[in-house]
Design a protein around this nucleic acid. Structure first.
Lengths: 205, 205
DNA sequence: GTCTATAAGTCGATAGAC
DNA sequence: GTCTATCGACTTATAGAC
């Protein structure tokens, strides 16, 4: 605790206000689309005048930046807490399912995290860090699976293919299951290719 | 030819002007991003005043709609003209390579065709038709492959997985080949799963 | 320090002269 | 068909009350 400036007095109000603006921004993005987000709508929702937002965020891009950082941080936290089965193949299915569920739960969040939707917006290095941490954690949990030595390219292929299911689902059948129902088959395909063992035999349908 | 109103007199000028505006819109989108496209920038590029664009397109969304239609029409035309090897597996590789090359050649075009980047923009039925035609042609060429009976889900899985390579390439390594170099391996994986025969043995490296 | 008030510049879009 | 003029909405920034 020592060494931290004890300005906690009104620092908490600032942080709370920031969180409030951020939460309002997500609500507006879900209602009006990520690219349709306006500072006026955010201010309305949080009960402020638009210029007052500049007290908390230097620009609209800074707001997007904070949203990007928060989204990947939440992904990383929840993925870190995700309990996986001991069976390697079941674990890979669990990772894929977690990834797909997270990406399909929130369209603007998915667009911000995984696409390049906002022109001229590039995450700052500080906000890009959580996404790198999340990816490293993913590689780490893959490599911790018993019975196979994974190369970088193996994880890349997995991420690309599973991400493709998400993208196809969102753009061709939003709200449905036309592509997500193929996820199990796709993951088995990839797992077979990696020679991933199954210590527990698969259940009968 | 009979039955067509012979108004071709100044109808051609109208059509030419429309094409010119459309071409300018693509150039602006490639320069400023799809979401960063403005009617002023389009008007500047085509040597018009912004309100004059409304003579040719009823709204900005109508312009996006025409771009969407043009992109899928061009895809369908070029795919129809694509010559594929007789060997079924080589043909599938050809289809995948064509799809990926087309999607990676132009970011705003890819965003417009395959993602939901513009808030509140949904293609009109008339503009959606070419994309359906293209998908049906793709299914048709898959089914024409000798030696295997393909279900709808098989094509869906192929489209999703290959589309995932495109999305990952654009968002994680634009301009590189980190994901596209995995395409051959992915397609072989899918082809193996479908039991696709190889009449011609694969070449040695 | 945080807010209100306000203004400049830009966006999509419309009305009406020629 | 194209123009001028203009509207309402949005982003951004500054000035000043509390």
């Amino acid at each position: 605790m020592l060494g931290t400036p004890t300005q906690t007095w009104q620092d908490r109000r600032r942080a709370a206000a920031r969180r409030e603006v951020l939460a309002a921004a997500w609500e507006v993005a879900r209602r009006d689309g990520l690219g349709g987000l306006t500072l006026r709508a955010v201010a309305d929702r949080v009960g402020m005048r638009p210029p007052s937002l500049y007290t908390h965020f230097a620009s609209k891009h800074a707001l997007y930046d904070a949203m990007f950082r928060q989204a990947w941080s939440e992904f990383d936290e929840r993925f870190a807490a995700l309990e996986l089965p001991a069976d390697p193949r079941a674990a890979v299915h669990g990772i894929a399912r977690f990834y797909v569920d997270f990406a399909l739960a929130d369209l603007p969040r998915h667009q911000l995290m995984d696409q390049r939707v906002i022109p001229d917006f590039t995450p700052s290095p500080e906000s890009y860090a959580p996404s790198q941490r999340a990816m490293e954690r993913m590689v780490g949990r893959f490599r911790a699976l018993q019975g196979v030595a994974l190369a970088e390219a193996d994880v890349d292929l997995f991420v690309a293919a599973v991400g493709g299911v998400v993208a196809a689902q969102w753009s061709n059948d939003p709200g449905g299951d036309r592509y997500t129902r193929l996820l199990g088959r796709l993951v088995d395909l990839l797992a077979d290719d990696l020679g991933l063992p199954t210590t527990t035999p698969r259940e009968d349908p």
